[in-house]
Write a protein that binds this DNA or RNA. Structure first.
Length: 374
RNA sequence: GGAGGGGUGGGAGAGUGGCUAAUUCCAGCAGACUGUAAAUCUGCCCGCUUCGGCGUACGGUGGUUCGAAUCCACCCCCCUCCA
């Protein structure tokens, strides 16, 4: 059986391109992972997600534990079979919900107790239970439970939070060693808000514990792009060269381009799917809102040269109409288009790194989209 | 011809003397969304504006009143029923 491993194929400055090998298939990096929180990449068929170029998608421990329940998914053959996605799946631990559902949870050393956002019932998520659930789901790449605090945050609070996440990292690893199957991987998560000393402490302690990959958590939580890049600048250079680096929850295309240039290998974000459902489309020239009146009579598709049917075969006027009429197909097509755009961006980044032309690629991206990536 | 009901901002529809440039919904215009409580949320939506206001406004005209979308008179129009 293929073990989990990472091979680095080429570098260009700090940027890298490589391959993550898993028993369920390879993941080309830099990789973008569409988010499928509740066992579905919303508004998409799994085969279409695959066809956009996605090697791996995300699932979520918290959501699936509440509904339909991890044990039920396990008894039905695991998440891959349940949702008809045979490629790798990465699951978040529920750590993000510690922040996003902060009004519904209680945090202790032991773990997080949630009042379900669905029915109010109480659920305890400990590092051990989070790993158990991720194993029941059958996730190929699993995340330690962590606390993801928003920025700005005081140094003392960020330090205490980061150290709690470190203790949870150790507990997660012990539980993972007990419950996981060969070929699965557990990533540790670097925290420490936007403080260099805390990020360094978090990273070096995680590397002592030892993980097959490292996530950078707690970014894109209110600090802004420039500050996020500043944190990456003093974090990625100290990360293990031989292990994949995953910037969690990021981001906009410009965020991804800038982070790849700083040595990040993996990304996930709800933006292409959520914004797609909300009428926003990314094009090579930047983001547009298809509901704008100026598209009402625009007979051109989003990208006539695209290999994606959603981008190529439907006019902006038609997409505009679908959104104005509240038709489901509008959300489906824009989600499809956005995911394809993101995957094309990743493919472009990989090719540029391999060719040693990342700087040109970034300059071209900036010129076309007017997005800041430095 | 008679009896009743009704005419409010693009539409629907609240409001029956000052707290009303007028609740709310829809339509319209724009913005946001970053490990998904999101097919969601926010703002604008009579005209002008130096964004503090100013001017007009609740079918029409005239009146009562310090003050009227709200009360009175007449006129116009619409709906229902009876002839």
């Amino acid at each position: 059986m293929t073990q989990f491993s990472f091979t680095l194929d080429a570098t260009d400055g700090a940027a890298r391109t490589g391959t993550i090998h898993t028993p369920r298939g390879d993941i080309k990096t830099p990789a973008f992972m569409p988010v499928g929180t509740a066992g579905t990449v919303k508004a998409m068929f799994p085969e279409d997600v695959r066809a956009t170029g996605a090697d791996i998608i995300l699932g979520n421990t918290y959501h699936l534990m509440l509904r339909p329940g991890a044990e039920r998914v396990a008894s039905l053959g695991g998440l891959h079979k349940f949702m008809n996605w045979q490629s790798p799946i990465l699951t978040d631990s529920g750590g993000y919900q510690v922040m996003s559902l902060s009004s519904l949870r209680k945090l202790t050393e032991e773990g997080v107790s949630f009042a379900s956002h669905i029915d109010g019932s109480r659920h305890m998520l400990t590092p051990e239970r989070s790993i158990e659930i991720q194993c029941l789901l059958g996730a190929d790449i699993q995340m330690q439970l962590d606390e993801c605090p928003a920025i700005p945050i005081e140094h003392a609070k960020a330090a205490a939070s980061m150290r709690l996440s470190l203790r949870w990292a150790e507990r997660s690893k012990r539980a993972f060693e007990e419950k996981s199957k060969p070929g699965q991987a557990l990533f540790g998560i670097v925290q420490g808000a936007n403080f260099e000393d805390l990020r360094r402490e978090s990273l070096s302690r995680l590397m002592e514990i030892g993980f097959p990959g490292y996530s950078i958590g707690g970014l894109a939580v209110g600090e802004g792009r420039a500050e996020m890049f500043r944190v990456l600048d003093f974090t990625t250079p100290h990360m293990d060269r031989a292990k994949p680096r995953y910037l969690m929850g990021v981001g906009k295309p410009g965020d991804i381009v800038g982070a790849v240039a700083r040595g990040v290998d993996m990304f996930d974000c709800v933006l292409p799917t959520r914004a797609g459902r909300h009428g926003q489309a990314w094009t090579p020239e930047g983001a547009i809102n298809i509901t704008n009146a100026r598209f009402a009579e625009d007979g051109e598709p989003l990208d006539p040269a695209s290999s994606c049917p959603a981008s190529r075969d439907y006019s902006k006027a038609y997409l505009h109409h679908l959104f104005k009429a509240g038709e489901y197909l509008g959300a489906m097509l824009l989600t499809w288009h956005n995911l394809h755009y993101y995957q094309q961006l990743m493919a472009g980044l990989r090719a540029a790194i391999k060719a040693g032309r990342l700087a040109e690629f970034v300059a071209d991206f900036r010129a076309k989209t007017c997005e800041e990536t430095l």
